[in-house]
Nucleic acid binder design. Structure first.
Lengths: 346, 346
DNA sequence: AACAGAATTCAAAGCGCTTTGAATCCGTTT
DNA sequence: AAACGGATTCAAAGCGCTTTGAATTCTGTT
């Protein structure tokens, strides 16, 4: 069932039918109703490819998912991010196109996407501190929104990001207020912008109280359970071990917890653990009451925001850069408590 | 730069240029070379939409990602599965189109995909025991491959699946051989086909030794850390607690571990834990030596297989159903050991 | 009753590519 | 040297839709 078929069936021209279905004003309301009904009755759906060719719009948004060539790892937050973005696309009638690209080959991938013309815009994932994709995409003139930011890039661009610095500053302050002075930071991979910002927030809070971060208490790497476990195991054995741990992901925090409980330490009493929580669907931080005290910010919501912003840009023909800074909330769970020295007093 | 531009530039007709680039035989080799070089030099890329309209092939594969309306959860294995499938599509020049659909609205989604005609085939994820999508897609005549199977569907269809029954039968036998008799099963959601098969394998191994599964030792639900923890915590307190746990995912197993270690139990000595491991990139079961004894089967590889199979079907015009049964390997880690009663003898 | 102008509808061109059927070229054959 | 057939190349139609510019039909006026 093509547009032409439907038109013949109705005794109308394809022009009128097309206009009726696309809500153009220059068509009689009675006619429109007739057309819309016939379309529904005959289960007519305009052919996507034809529409795309005719309008020059792909009606699709591209997501380039980089795969680390060293770690062969897919960032576990993608699933939730895509779920959020997907909701928005679906509502707007857009497709979501995924491209999996080894992270040593991204530039070529973006160029190809541009010239193939199968998407109207792109979401940039996991920006590095000095991310080259931003300049590239600006150059290519392809609308894009970055999920995160790139501290090393001066030129303006559109992004949606969590206030990582502030979140970690607050988290650190929270621990400092509880009397902790030796605080460990189990961070993401150096080079990733979000990891840099989180460390900055951490250090800023410390230095505001005249403290300085101990390099021995900072690790960075893939945020896995194993990472957290290894870090906690190593640090708990130090001569002057941390009394609190700040982790960058729930998975890491779970590893930290294991490393500490293994040594007979009780979270919230003997030692504190605070983590960032992306609110992933399959990794809940407790049902009602949170298990870990955490800075919480939904990745899924970030996905929605990114998608909505990009669609706005696409509709408006790019326009001036837009930004959206989400604040994480600090939720208090059972994994933190006052420093031991303070507990007797309490 | 369009095909026409390129043709004019070369003093050739669009026909010849098109044929030269697409490898048709009726074009002079010298001409072809000239065309290919010019195309590269001018960075020519055929417009995807135009190509699609002309050929009638979408050059894209659809993945419908159901989102549980109750749990708002995105299956955490998707990311890795898509990574695997994406590799294959990229090599074949296919796009991957994701559609996020609430799981109460799937039928409409599939019908719409079909009539919009923007994909050449579909991968069906997370089949239920009586999955209606299989009949629907067969009906719609859209090529598809199921990742998993639906025990309740009699008609033949194409699928790629892990031999879940066998994996869990072997796992159970492994534990039985170690002297365990009270074995707990921490399973996925009832209703999912894979969960049914796993339970079957579990029960089959038990009954082969004249044992019968104790309902008190079986739980099923979302495979989260919290699930595992809750189950272990509850079961360890039973009058006759299990001496071994069989978990359906690494996340669950991590929860089980916590629930057991919390009670001072040492894995591999006091109690055994065996889990299924999907080899997710961000959830490694140890680096070299596995932490958990596990039945291991890569979801990413399953993604590759599904994609390759579907591309074959699309190329061949569907054809007869193809199936691919992957066997999980049983890797021995540190989380299992002989039943305590047997250890003194050892 | 005739006409301007708004309201509708239509014919046809075009989006950039593939593909069919015809045309041209060129080395052989007789 | 004319005819033949394979090798190349080309013109044009078509994929299913949108959109421009023109044609037709309705209104309300005068």
């Amino acid at each position: 069932m093509t547009l032409k078929d439907l038109a013949t069936l109705l005794g109308l021209s394809p022009t009128t039918v097309s206009r009726a279905l696309n809500g153009y004003p220059e068509v009689n309301e009675a006619t429109r109703k007739r057309v819309v009904e016939a379309a529904k009755r005959h289960n007519y759906r305009p052919n996507t490819q034809a529409k795309r060719l005719a309008t020059g719009r792909a009606m699709a948004i591209g997501h380039v998912i980089p795969i680390s060539t060293q770690h062969e790892i897919v960032n576990p937050v993608f699933a939730d991010f895509l779920a959020g973005a997907g909701e928005v696309y679906a509502r707007a009638g857009y497709d979501m196109v995924l491209t999996i690209v080894p992270d040593d080959d991204e530039e070529r991938a973006y160029r190809e996407i541009r010239s193939k013309g199968n998407v109207d815009g792109i979401i940039v994932h996991a920006p590095k501190i000095h991310d080259t994709r931003i300049a590239l995409l600006t150059d290519l003139g392809l609308p894009f929104v970055v999920h995160g930011r790139a501290s090393g890039v001066r030129a303006p661009y559109s992004w949606v990001d969590v206030n990582n610095t502030r979140a970690f500053e607050r988290a650190t302050n929270f621990l400092l207020d509880l009397g902790h002075r030796r605080i460990a930071l189990i961070n993401g991979i150096e080079g990733m912008d979000f990891a840099l910002r989180r460390r900055r927030g951490f250090e800023r809070a410390l230095s505001a109280r005249g403290l300085v971060a101990d390099p021995a208490l900072m690790v960075s790497g893939e945020m896995t359970e194993a990472q957290g476990y290894a870090a906690a195991r190593m640090m708990r054995g130090l001569a002057d071990p941390p009394s609190a741990y700040l982790a960058a992901s729930l998975l890491s925090a779970m590893g930290v917890r294991r490393g500490l409980e293994e040594a007979g330490l009780v979270l919230g009493r003997d030692v504190s653990v605070l983590t960032h929580d992306d609110e992933l669907g399959y990794l809940k931080n407790g049902a009602q009451e949170p298990i870990f005290t955490a800075t919480r910010s939904s990745v899924r919501e970030a996905g929605r925001r990114c998608a909505a912003m990009l669609l706005r840009k696409v509709a408006a023909g790019d326009q001036s850069p837009e930004t959206d800074l989400l604040e994480a909330v600090l939720v208090v769970g059972q994994s933190t408590g006052p420093h031991r020295a303070l507990q007797k007093t309490g």
